[in-house]
Deep mutational scan, measured.
Amino acid sequence: ELELEEVDLYRMNSQDKLGLTVCYRTDDEDDIGIYISEIDPNSIAAKDGRIREGDRIIQINGIEVQNREEAVALLTSEENKNFSLLIARP
């Protein structure tokens, strides 16, 4: 049973970094989820404190993420200042 949490992050300008590194968990081929492998200690996500390494990203801004490229594109989008992440953890 996964616990879901919605985390809203806000950046003042497009130079601010959310600070999330995303990856696949390669140990299970059936698991195509996108996971947070690293959080930059000086980033918006780290200061917010709710997202943890190992969390799975389900949605970004209401869009279900299917692959790492999509997640990276959404997280690094210059147009977005508000990010709503739906994350899951066991």
Rank of each mutant, 00 (worst) to 15 (best):
E79V: 06
N42Q: 07
N61M: 03
P90I: 04
Y10M: 14
D27L: 13
K17G: 11
E69I: 06
S14T: 14
R52H: 09
R52G: 04
V7H: 02
R68Y: 15
R56C: 04
I57K: 00
G19V: 00
D48F: 02
R50C: 02
L75T: 03
E29P: 14
N80T: 13
K81T: 10
Y24E: 15
K47R: 10
G62I: 00
N80K: 06
G54D: 06
E5Q: 07
A71W: 04
D48W: 01
D55Q: 06
M12R: 12
K47Y: 12
N80F: 11
L2M: 15
A45V: 12
E53A: 12
I87K: 02
E53F: 06
R89K: 15
D16S: 10
I44C: 12
G49S: 10
R50H: 08
L85D: 00
E79T: 10
R11H: 14
Q15K: 12
T76K: 15
D8P: 02
Q66S: 15
L20Q: 00
Q59W: 03
D55M: 06
G49E: 05
E6A: 14
E29C: 08
R50D: 02
D16M: 09
E5P: 02
L20G: 00
S43K: 03
I34R: 01
I51M: 09
E79K: 13
S14H: 14
F83I: 10
S84Q: 14
S14C: 11
E1F: 15
K47M: 13
D48C: 14
N13F: 07
R89Y: 03
L4Y: 11
N61R: 02
A45P: 02
I57S: 00
N13K: 12
I87D: 00
A73G: 09
I44V: 10
R50W: 01
I57A: 01
T21P: 02
S77A: 08
I39M: 11
K81V: 07
S37D: 15
L86W: 03
E1Q: 03
G49M: 05
N42E: 12
R56K: 15
M12S: 13
E78S: 13
D40C: 10
D31C: 10
I60D: 00
I32N: 02
K17C: 13
D28Y: 09
P90L: 02
N82A: 07
D55G: 01
E1V: 04
T76I: 11
L75V: 04
V65S: 07
R89N: 03
Y10D: 14
A88W: 05
I60F: 03
Q66M: 14
G62V: 00
D30C: 04
K17P: 12
I57N: 00
L18S: 01
I57T: 01
G49K: 14
V22E: 02
L75Y: 01
L86E: 08
Y24M: 13
G33I: 07
D31I: 05
A88P: 03
R56P: 00
S43E: 08
E5G: 04
L75D: 01
Y10R: 14
V72W: 13
T21H: 08
A71R: 01
C23H: 15
R50M: 02
V65P: 11
D27C: 05
P90S: 03
S77G: 10
N67W: 14
D8M: 01
E70H: 09
T76Y: 08
D27F: 06
L18M: 02
G33Q: 11
Q59S: 13
L86V: 15
D31K: 11
S43D: 07
R11T: 03
S84T: 07
G33Y: 13
P41M: 12
G62W: 02
G19A: 01
E53K: 06
K17N: 08
N80Q: 11
K47I: 10
T26S: 14
S84E: 09
L74Q: 14
L74I: 04
V65D: 06
N80E: 07
L85Y: 01
D48I: 03
G62Q: 05
F83E: 02
R89C: 03
D16I: 05
E79C: 09
I51P: 07
I58H: 14
L85H: 00
I44L: 11
D28Q: 08
I36T: 05
E3F: 15
S14P: 09
L4V: 11
R25K: 13
S77I: 07
I58N: 14
E78H: 13
E64A: 04
Y10H: 06
G33M: 15
G19D: 01
Y10S: 15
M12C: 02
K17H: 14
G49Y: 03
I44W: 02
R25N: 13
L9H: 00
D40W: 11
I60E: 00
E70K: 05
Q15G: 10
E1P: 03
T76P: 01
E38P: 02
L18D: 02
I58R: 14
S84N: 11
Q66R: 10
N67R: 07
S84Y: 05
D48Q: 04
Y35V: 13
F83R: 02
E29G: 12
G62M: 03
P41N: 12
D27M: 15
E79G: 07
D28L: 11
E5H: 12
E38F: 14
G54K: 05
V22H: 02
G62T: 05
L20R: 00
Q66G: 15
I60G: 00
I44F: 03
N13S: 15
S37V: 10
I87R: 06
L18C: 02
Y35S: 12
Y35N: 13
F83D: 02
A73S: 10
I60L: 09
M12Y: 10
N42P: 02
S43C: 05
R89D: 01
D48L: 02
N67V: 15
P41H: 12
S14G: 12
D27G: 15
I87T: 05
L85K: 01
V65Q: 05
R11A: 14
S37C: 12
D30F: 05
D31P: 07
N82G: 04
A71Y: 05
L9Q: 01
Q59I: 06
G33W: 12
Q15P: 09
I58Q: 07
G62C: 15
G62H: 10
N80R: 06
L2D: 03
L4A: 13
L86F: 05
E78K: 09
E70I: 04
E53I: 06
S37M: 10
T76R: 05
A46H: 13
D55N: 06
P41I: 14
K47T: 09
E78M: 07
L2F: 15
I39L: 09
G19F: 00
E6H: 06
F83G: 01
K47V: 05
I87N: 02
D27T: 15
D55V: 03
G54N: 12
D48R: 02
C23K: 08
Q15F: 06
T26E: 10
R56N: 11
I60C: 09
R68K: 12
D55T: 03
L20I: 15
A71E: 03
E64T: 04
E6I: 04
Q15D: 12
L20N: 00
R50I: 02
E78F: 13
R11S: 03
N82W: 07
R68W: 13
I63W: 05
E79S: 11
I44R: 03
T21E: 13
E69G: 05
D27E: 15
E78N: 09
D16L: 09
T21I: 07
M12F: 08
M12L: 12
L85F: 04
R52M: 10
L2C: 07
L4G: 05
G54M: 05
K17T: 09
F83A: 10
N61E: 03
A73I: 07
M12G: 12
I63S: 10
K47W: 05
G62D: 13
A88Y: 08
L86T: 14
N42H: 07
S77F: 15
K17R: 08
I44K: 02
D40A: 11
